[in-house]
Amino acid sequence: MVDKSLWMRQVEENPEHSSWYVERFRSLAREGADLDGEARLVDAMAERGARILDAGCGPGRVGGALHRAGHAVVGVDVDPTLIEAAEHDHPGPTWLVQDLAELDLPATGVTEPFDLVVSAGNVMTFLAPTTRARVLERLAAHLVPGGRAAIGFGAERGYLFEDFLADAERAGLVSDTLLGTWDLRPFSPDSDFLVAILRRP
């Protein structure tokens, strides 16, 4: 059994945490907030009808937007409450409860590999530190050769950007492009956010 993620430890400490998180995004959507920035970037990377894995999908906003753009989306999250919200708010994709550190989608009947992986919302920093490298290996294993991953998270959240990039390289993912935001601003040594576009050779 892998170590529990920071997210699931927060849920154990506060059983209302997941419901609060779901309502936060429902509220933002009702207010007309732009919640599709990450999905727009990933959509621009994808051919029409691409197979996309939303890794750490939460309540489904990114995967839902990509589904509406015409892609075949599978979303995975460790939190059943978030998956239930994704199924309710964003019907269409396949939503699954799975721990990313043990990700084995063929065992669930999802046998085809993915053209793209997206992991938004600081997912990498919510993982147990002992599982981060393993998660990157599992994501790489679910990509087609030449497939890409777009992974974004903020600085000062306990996972140094250089450590993440070293873990990604050890997982067999080549760094193609580094951005400082999901809206394509360049990455610099002073950036407080990283969006890494990685490729499986």
Rank of each mutant, 00 (worst) to 15 (best):
P189A: 00
N14T: 07
A168R: 05
L116C: 04
L66T: 07
V117A: 01
G75T: 04
E47N: 11
T130Q: 11
S188D: 04
L105Q: 12
L35N: 01
R134P: 02
L143Y: 06
A140T: 09
L6V: 14
R138E: 06
L178C: 05
A141R: 01
E31Q: 06
L160V: 14
R24A: 07
V110W: 03
G49T: 02
A44N: 03
L53V: 04
D36Q: 06
G172H: 11
V110H: 11
L66I: 04
G32A: 12
A44Q: 11
F193L: 06
A86P: 05
A65W: 01
L105S: 12
E31T: 05
E112K: 15
D89R: 02
G56I: 10
G37F: 03
D183E: 14
L100E: 04
P145D: 09
G152Q: 08
E87Q: 15
F153S: 06
R134F: 02
H17L: 12
G63N: 09
R9D: 06
L96F: 09
F114D: 00
A171E: 07
V195D: 02
L6R: 15
L28T: 09
P186I: 14
S119V: 01
G154K: 09
G63C: 07
E23T: 13
L82Y: 12
D176C: 15
S119L: 00
A46E: 07
G121V: 04
D167Y: 00
F187V: 07
S188G: 13
V73R: 13
G121N: 05
P201I: 00
V174H: 14
W182R: 05
P113G: 05
R51K: 10
V78N: 11
P145G: 03
D34I: 14
D99H: 04
Q10I: 13
V11T: 09
T131H: 09
S188F: 05
L194R: 06
R157Y: 03
A72V: 07
E102K: 09
G32P: 14
